[in-house]
Design a binder for these strands. Structure first.
Lengths: 229, 229
DNA sequence: GGACCACCATGACTTCCGTCATAGGAATGC
DNA sequence: GCATTCCTATGACGGAAGTCATGGTGGTCC
């Protein structure tokens, strides 16, 4: 969609999967790398497209969305340093889901073929990739278990998970500096827009989760942890 | 639980992840392998235990179960040749879910440490492991998207998936030679025992999915494919 | 045989939540 | 100014499915 090329040194160190590279590796890989800027809501790739490039989030946040019947389901939200679509690229399969930016983002991408050749010659790098993949698999398993129970319960789990990943302790409570629309919350917990709105409205009144300009504020996480089933 | 050791040649060829091994690799790995017999319903490992061994299904079927609130959710059902708990072992993390046999089964296991050393010295073997992991990740993503929609819709998707994986074409229709209790069906589609029973009873009357002594029979898969949302 | 047990089945009631409809506020464009 | 669009908000209604209860069937063990 958008996509103006950005010229800058490749931020290898900010990407765990590439940080293991030695200087000579980096030099070999750098010319293949492409950094692009995306606006909020831009599509990086679409479900079904061939996966000829592996993407990494440099700046911003990206949601992975899969069409599930009439509604969308957000499979995950990825932040800086995380790989996007690597799975499909390894398997040389089409992307199984779409990637859409949640904020203005900088995305680094590498051609799949060259990346794979590098992996084969670098065991210690492959080990990192393996660990990253297995971790992702565990997170997805966990999210799947979270998809059971009531909508309120799932929402509580969502905000607790977000707290762990990006939460900041402040004087007023736990701050989640991530702007999500009601629709995106609905997609994350697998419910409808209306249900998400109703729930968030109630939580606003009860001061369980407060929606703010730049994210969410949770005065007391125990109120969320008490939510059951 | 049960666990009498079984002595026999290691069935490398029946396990995709190990089939790529060369004769010398196999010779090195064989002394580390352990084959054990389990009865139906035995626990191979439990959620939270340290993952010091990687397991493979040789004979039988194994379900991966995660406690989700008050009910269990079956994350997947694994058959001969598939790895069990490899994910946790790579990450040196505790098992994120429990593994329980659905039938009398033979399970091969290898110490995690030695396996990893072998992987690091064999790039082509690592490539196969990578491909296997990514494939699993995609399947889990797919199953997660399937968890939305009505219970009937999810059940229809379940039986269609099972048809693809283990279905056999017979004169009467598509046969799924896999015995699952109503409770296990409920766990697979994330619903209650009663709802699963009601649905299966109705499908029995409507001849959509017939429960038989040794599995299920689907006279017409189109009846299932027509189920929506 | 009888006593247990696991599994399947069915009804009654209730709650959750998806759908449809309507409306208000904020940002943007002309 | 006004129109348009996007997001949030709320009510009404109905259907899907969870919960609780009871009962039937087949198997196993003594």
């Amino acid at each position: 969609m958008a996509a103006m090329p950005i010229e800058a040194p490749i931020p290898f160190d900010a990407i765990p999967l590439l940080a293991a590279l030695r200087p000579d590796d980096r030099e070999a890989l750098a010319p293949l790398c492409r950094m692009r800027g995306y606006d909020k809501g831009d599509t990086i790739f679409r479900e079904g497209e061939p996966a000829d490039r592996i993407h990494f989030v440099h700046i911003g946040r990206v949601k992975i969305v899969k069409a599930a019947g009439t509604r969308d389901l957000i499979l995950e939200i990825l932040g800086p340093g995380e790989p996007v679509g690597a799975v499909a690229a390894f398997e040389r399969r089409p992307f199984p889901a779409s990637a859409i930016t949640l904020e203005p983002s900088g995305i680094l991408s590498i051609p799949e073929r060259e990346f794979f050749i590098l992996l084969e010659t670098r065991p210690e790098m492959m080990r990192r990739v393996l660990a990253g993949l297995t971790y992702r698999l565990m997170m997805v398993n966990k999210r799947m278990a979270d998809l059971t129970g009531s909508a309120e319960y799932r929402a509580a789990r969502l905000f607790l998970t977000l707290s762990d990943r990006v939460g900041l302790q402040t004087a007023e409570g736990l701050k989640i500096p991530l702007v999500l629309s009601r629709q995106e919350i609905a997609d994350l917990i697998g419910t409808t827009l209306e249900t998400a709105i109703r729930l968030m409205s109630r939580w606003q009144k009860e001061a369980v989760v407060l929606t703010e300009k730049d994210g969410f504020l949770i005065p007391d996480t125990n109120a969320l942890k008490g939510t059951d089933q």
